[in-house]
């Protein structure tokens, strides 16, 4: 921190930010809230199943029609559903399904979208034209409806759900990476790599792409929220995971007819979904403020460095 020790020579503009990322996210109001919420969800996913284990009713599939639609009690903290299954157990076990579907879909979307975007932006020409027209067409379909149609055709189930959500969302990653690659490929270090005789392919995958991923990282939490929204919406329509699996959207959809008699069965899973999406959206908002490459390139050096660079300039 002391200015006297700071050497004025090369400014650490690309200083190691990554290890400070978490701290910076925790300083930001919205991402702090998002991270706290997310920590709660992670805790439920990891520890939850152990806490609810121990009795026969702690199996999310355990049915007891004699105890169906009970209100909250000491043995069933959040009551039971229409098949006498413990609601809390199902919510806790459901966390892993809903959240893992979201993560799976985003990972798959990144795996499809990032290479396509990289090829498109790096080689330009007819490769770019071809990929971009293809993306235009996929984007012409409303996101949710494309996922809906894919699940309708492929059939429900965990794997198909992830495929459908990923296929409906990967074009956004293509666009992001392409735009980023287009600017990174013009950077001097790319030229330097070429001058050293590095092959085109290696320039792309080893030099350009790793430096083009910031927008993807910034966008990832928002995409996670969106994937969970889509997947649980499909579950709500009865097109999500297969029957007894306690996915939150599916639970909501199954309880729809009980809206007049047992609205609480609609309240709990909805709150869980809202919390998860909210967490990712808040984290995404903070992430954008902290990491946005536009802010970074635009004179947003910390005040200490700004003063130093001013001195160094003179």
């Amino acid at each position: 921190m002391t200015e006297s020790t700071a050497p004025l020579a090369p400014l650490p503009v690309a200083a190691p930010r990554r290890d400070h990322l978490l701290r910076r996210l925790l300083r930001h109001r919205s991402s702090r809230l998002g991270l706290i919420l997310l920590a709660g969800y992670v805790a439920v996913i990891v520890v939850g199943p152990l806490l609810v284990a121990g009795s026969p009713t702690s199996d999310p599939h355990y049915q007891n029609l004699g105890e169906s639609l009970q209100g909250p009690s000491a043995s069933h903290w959040l009551g039971t559903d229409q098949l006498g299954r413990d609601e809390l157990v199902r919510l806790v076990i459901g966390a892993r399904y809903t959240i893992l579907i979201g993560i799976g879909a985003v990972v798959a979307g990144v795996l499809i979208g990032v290479p396509l975007g990289a090829l498109s932006g790096f080689y330009r020409g007819w490769v770019d034209l071809l990929i971009q027209r293809f993306i235009d067409i996929v984007l012409a379909f409303p996101h949710f409806l494309l996922a809906l149609a894919l699940v309708a055709v492929l059939g429900p189930g965990l794997r198909n759900l992830i495929i459908a959500v990923a296929l409906a969302s990967f074009p956004r990653f293509v666009r992001l990476v392409r735009a980023s690659v287009l600017s990174v490929r013009e950077q001097p270090f790319t030229e330097a790599a070429r001058a050293l005789g590095v092959s085109e392919r290696r320039v792309l995958w080893r030099h350009v792409l790793p430096n083009s991923l910031t927008p993807v990282i910034v966008q990832a939490p928002l995409e996670l929220g969106s994937a969970i929204l889509t997947a649980s919406g499909l579950g709500f329509l009865g097109l999500g995971v297969r029957q007894p699996t306690p996915e939150w959207g599916t639970m909501l959809g199954e309880s729809r007819d009980l809206i007049f008699s047992n609205p609480r069965l609609l309240t709990y899973p909805g709150l869980c979904i809202l919390g998860a999406i909210l967490a990712f959206n808040l984290l995404g908002d903070g992430m954008r403020d902290v990491l946005d490459p536009r802010l970074r390139s635009r004179k947003r050096l910390p005040r200490r460095l700004r003063r130093l660079s001013g001195k160094a300039g003179r």
Binding site: L229, L252, N281
Partner: peptide, 13 residues
């Protein structure tokens, strides 16, 4: 933020 995070079906219900 709540607005963009609320699932449509849950708002409706």
């Amino acid at each position: 933020v709540f607005g963009v995070s609320m699932p449509v079906y849950w708002v409706g219900l």
